[in-house]
Design a protein around this nucleic acid. Structure first.
Length: 497
RNA sequence: GACCGAUUCGUCUAGGGGUCUAGGACACCGCCCUUUCACGGCGGCAACACGGGUUCAAAUCCCGUAUCGGUUACCA
């Protein structure tokens, strides 16, 4: 039997980092087992579902490279089927009409309200105390015919328990006494989540349900539906959650854009790097290797190596350098400096196009120079943004000077104000502007002035690139070329910043 | 509150009775390298939540406690 898994986002926000990880694990599992990876959009909550949200989620999935193997299913298209199934269950006596008027919740603190109510009721509450549970069919039919609105609830047996073997968490049991008679169909005829999920998973022939641990206890309710329907249940695999620092829930409301996938794409992350990082949040191959290509991840992935404890996604909103997880940033840098140059170039090209730094010559006459330059400067970069930011001076005269660099490497050595233009003259006289010649020139110049090479080189770095850090300065000068080097060394712009 | 789950360095994690004076990665710190910097190399700091068992032996098994998380909707 081929495995079939689905990623089932509800389009009520952008693609959350935790959802992205769920999508990744589904994808890896499908490919590892030679199965199908499907996408089902759970848009039954009409109130909260939006087009933008859907577009953003699909965008994020596309960026990460998770293309579905079959057409995307929209859950709302199946509402009629879900309704029919609920009615069938009612007919069979496995569900009943509940004429209790709908309770209204003030929209803001629903979670809190429910928790408070549950606390008040304590463990005393009898889950089978619904007064309509055992009314006769005749009475129920009559009320329905008279037009009284009703919801349809599943009739959960009084004693017994459900159980299933979770592929991650192991044997799971829950007493019927702890499960309420869940609502299948709302009084307005709208099918609810647990029903819709089960029906669609059956319809789509899903063999493995891989989803967040927040669904673990609700799984028992779904099993009850599978049983009422007389259908075989799939294998369940629940994933540990991804938390914010301090072990709190990672949410848009409190943490903002940091939880959105598109933030990372827009911040210059490489999809492969981020996917690699995500894979290691809640799963590991049990070896010391940490950098994995997609193919390697697919090959090594298995459900039994998924962790059972939640992971913290580490970041500090008050620290610009630590705006997101250190390890994610490191991994991105690692990919930038070690990936194949011809895989990196297209990504840099796109970034430069967006920043209006791209020139057609880079793909033509200046191709060699461009590639050599990228190869040189990638060494210290963390994101794709750095190519248009810190690396800007290599492609444009319009670049910024880092204030700290000016203070530390330029203004602290007032002599450089004269020396740098003097050095420019020496360079100008150079016929052969090669690495060795440049270095010899600098060295002689420093001996003449009785200063350390570092002082001149660091000062030159600021004037030439606007930065305090970068690749080997001599190599950078060679790459920049004689004209630009001479011009910038003579310029007083940086001094006036 | 009830039910469910988890708990190894600051973070991600290895480990599943002896090989653990607990390994790796990120971050941090130091040294070296580059006659220069946030590369690289080497090294350092740093953890088995707590208490009881079981056992010749427990980070690993069992029980309790604590803490954290999840669920408890006519949301998904």
């Amino acid at each position: 039997m081929t495995t079939r898994v689905r990623f089932a986002p509800s389009p009520t926000g952008y693609l959350h980092i935790g959802s992205a990880r769920t999508a990744l694990f589904n994808y890896l599992f499908a490919k590892n087992t030679g199965g199908k990876f499907l996408i089902r959009v759970e848009d039954t909550d009409q109130q909260r579902s939006t087009e933008e949200s859907l577009a953003s989620i699909l965008d994020g999935l596309k960026w990460l490279g998770f293309a579905p193997d079959e057409e995307i299913v929209f859950q709302s298209d199946n509402a009629d089927k879900h309704r029919a199934i609920a009615l069938k269950l009612l007919e069979e006596g496995k569900a009943y009409r509940d004429f209790t008027p709908k309770e209204d919740h003030s929209s803001k603190n629903i979670k809190q309200e429910i928790a408070d109510k549950a606390r008040r009721e304590g463990g005393e509450k009898d889950m089978r105390d619904n007064e309509y549970r055992d009314v006769s069919n005749e009475e129920s039919d009559a009320k329905a015919e008279s037009g009284e609105p009703f919801a349809i609830r599943l009739k959960v047996a009084k004693t017994g328990k459900t159980s299933f073997e979770d592929a991650v968490y192991g044997e799971q049991e829950r007493d019927y006494a702890d499960i309420e008679d869940l609502v299948l169909l709302r009084s307005d005829g709208h099918p609810l989540y647990n029903l819709a999920v089960v029906c669609d998973d059956i319809e789509m022939n899903i063999t493995h349900v891989i989803r967040g641990q927040d669904h673990l206890t609700n799984t028992h309710k779904q099993i009850l539906i599978y049983e009422a329907l007389g259908k075989e249940k799939p294998t369940f695999a629940h994933l540990p959650l991804i938390l914010a620092p301090g072990g709190k829930k990672l949410s848009k409301r409190t943490h903002g854009e940091i939880v959105s996938m598109t933030t990372y794409r827009d911040a210059g992350f490489i999809a492969d790097a981020f996917r690699n990082f995500l894979a290691l949040l809640g799963w590991s191959a049990g070896e010391e290797q940490e950098i994995y290509s997609l193919d390697e991840l697919v090959e090594k992935f298995s459900l039994d190596r998924i962790h059972q404890s939640n992971a913290t996604f580490n970041f500090d909103a008050n620290n610009e350098r630590r705006w997101t997880d250190d390890k994610a940033i490191w991994m991105n840098a690692e990919y930038i400096r070690t990936m194949k140059l011809d895989e990196l170039i297209p990504l840099v090209r796109e970034e430069m196009r967006n920043e209006k730094l791209w020139r057609e010559e880079y793909d033509d006459d200046d191709k060699q120079w461009f590639e050599a330059t990228i190869d040189l400067i990638r060494e210290r970069f963390y994101t794709l943004k750095d190519f248009s930011g810190q690396g800007r001076a290599f492609f444009s005269e319009d670049f910024d000077y880092d204030k700290k660099a000016i203070e530390k490497n330029l203004k602290k050595h007032e002599d450089l104000r004269q020396w740098l233009p003097e050095l420019a003259e020496k360079f100008e006289a150079l016929e052969d502007f090669s690495h060795d010649a440049i270095f010899e020139t600098v060295k002689e110049f420093c001996e003449e002035k009785g200063t350390k090479v570092g002082v001149v080189l660091n000062g030159a770095r600021v004037v030439l690139t606007g930065q305090a850090v970068g690749p080997s300065m001599v190599a950078a000068i060679e790459q920049l070329g004689k004209d630009k080097t001479v011009m910038r060394l003579k310029s007083q712009v940086a001094w006036n910043e």
